[in-house]
Design a binder for these strands. Structure first.
Lengths: 246, 246
DNA sequence: CACGTTCTACCATTGAATGGAAGGTACCGA
DNA sequence: TCGGTACCTTCCATTCAATGGTAGAACGTG
């Protein structure tokens, strides 16, 4: 026994500690954290204490561990999506005002759409699609809008490895969706979380003609009017793209 | 020379790498990063590569280093301020709709107010007070609102160490501000970034009667109407506090 | 084409990280 | 009141992972 019996580096462990928090959980007991991260308690304790001395974690009195405010601050100040979000925010507010629907902004990460910003429909009670949430490409309008405007190579690679865990969707179906989205310039899809809602998303293209994000809305089926929604979204998306430069 | 000639641990270095990004800067060259973090280039390179393999950083082709999307995702999913922001968001939108002013939400971290959420006034061009920004307690209405409702001990400790770098404000002046804020139940202060604006903030109190946040607005001097602003803020703040529980 | 700059890879050296064990502390139910 | 359990925290001899000087590769530039 010495520098890690399990053969992982300090960096590995730091990552595992941060990753150990289940989605939406903000605090964990030290023992549970050590357990989840697969680190011996004494090592976990030392590591957590070190990190909390730097403010990346917050080790409370009874062994309660939270992510540190300082970490949140650093990440949000220097976030890779900072410029995107700043450029998009005013346009997203426009959409929110004009259409009065839930508006969201997503980027592609791996084979998933990662939602980086969101504005709720005024008066809406629950806002399901949380910020920093993920959705697989093939079951989100944002994902389809993003993927349908990527390079042929990336799309091929995506379709190559595609496999729907539930077995409901085949690669051919997805291929069809992507082709349709590429042709129309927007993607639409029946809501997954809520069957009575539809998602519509359009690509956001930067100065280099690269699709860097998708701007979308989630609307109740009853209010689904493509003729009204798509032009508004496309206009806003073009505005965002112009702000981005690059 | 061996495990760090400078005598710092791996954890120290991981922290310094993340902290190396200046405010608002999203990408850094490897050499500059190593320089800023005070780490030998070869070590920095190895460390960055390890972190980027886990997605905490993103090491681009030409040695361009960014914070990783995964880090942003993890931090925002499990942020210590998640519950607070979720509880506050609807009320902040109410304020935005009713008063049509910049609305912000801050927590106390050290002797500074850390802004954790923000909604811009509709139609406002520049949104100065960035999210994840900090302001010293004594020159922000949010800071004063927060500090004025902390325990006597903490306030004493704060005033004890207080020193204004610019030398314009004395501890006695701050003491007076705090007393006033505590008495009135809100804090007001002339804008620091912009002399023609005023900040007004009220404390957000959770179920345990602990002041956990401050809800505030920034208004142009011409639209400064305490009679209208304070009751609205206080009502929203009580609503947030009720949602919080604890 | 030579020079400066930056990124990347290698590898012998060594002290920082490891984790079992033992000491605290708080809480519970009998 | 008292044993029992379940945490958190500290200690310290062992040892292997991290270190960083060095050198090569890949640029761009005057």
């Amino acid at each position: 026994m010495a520098n890690s019996a399990s053969g992982d580096s300090v960096v590995d462990r730091v990552v595992r500690v941060i990753e150990a928090f289940p989605e939406g959980v903000t605090s964990l007991q030290l023992t549970e954290l050590a357990d989840r991260a697969g680190i011996p308690l004494s090592s976990a304790h030392r590591l957590v204490r070190q990190l909390s001395e730097h403010g990346l974690l917050d080790l409370g009195v009874g062994g309660t561990v939270r992510l540190g405010l300082r970490l949140w601050e650093l990440v949000n100040r220097n976030s890779p999506t900072l410029a995107l979000r700043q450029a998009a925010m005013p346009f997203m507010e426009d959409i929110q005002q004009v259409l009065n629907q839930n508006v969201n902004l997503a980027v592609l990460d791996g084979w998933e759409a990662l939602f980086v910003e969101r504005l709720s429909r005024r008066g809406s009670v629950a806002n399901r699609a949380r910020i920093a949430g993920r959705m697989p490409v093939h079951i989100s309008s944002a994902g389809l809008a993003l993927m349908s405007h990527q390079s042929r190579e990336l799309q091929a690679e995506y379709l190559e490895q595609f496999q729907d865990p539930s077995g409901k969707v085949t690669a051919d179906v997805v291929r069809h969706f992507l082709a349709e989205a590429a042709q129309h310039g927007y993607a639409q899809l029946a809501g997954v979380v809520d069957p009575d809602t539809w998602g519509i998303a359009v690509p956001v293209v930067n100065g280099k003609r690269r699709t860097v994000a998708a701007l979308g809305v989630v609307v109740p089926l009853a209010e689904m009017r493509l003729q009204a929604l798509v032009p508004a979204l496309q206009t806003a998306a073009r505005g965002i793209g112009r702000q981005l430069g690059d």
